[in-house]
Amino acid sequence: MTADLTLISTASVMIGCGVYLILERSLTRVLVGLVLLSNGVNVLFLVASGPAGRAPIVGLSPPPATMSDPLPQALVLTAIVITLGTTAFLLAMAYRSWQLTGHDDVQDDVEDAAIRRLAAADEASDSYDLSQRAGDEDDLVEPAQEEGRPR
């Protein structure tokens, strides 16, 4: 099988940028990263489908040998639809996160925060109560924000 170098490099650049953006803290950037990533993967499917050819319409087009492979195109279509749904959902979550906290940053992992606190306080392992307290630490300040919403 021959592969198209342009397509491969396009896909790798898109996936690389996508991965970089996913590592960001802000959910909106993560979202842009995911969109880039998924489009990069879609381009990969074009690589997988082999050399380009005529439109694969049975009965209209020239002999099957000159058609491009229709299956990866069908797969890409499905993947695009799924990405659309995911993007919409993530956008809604980012908006909700902004409503609740005033920013859309990915929040700290509860366990990590507890461990960091332990290290800061230089306590012996007493995770018995710490993880618990950490478990509730969400929305302590939220109601205040509901009243006097920032911005």
Binding site: F89, L90, M93, R96, V106
Partner: peptide, 12 residues
């Protein structure tokens, strides 16, 4: 709040 926080990690 807590579900959005947990959901972010899960979804991504």
């Amino acid at each position: 709040g807590s579900r959005i926080r947990a959901g972010t990690i899960y979804v991504v």
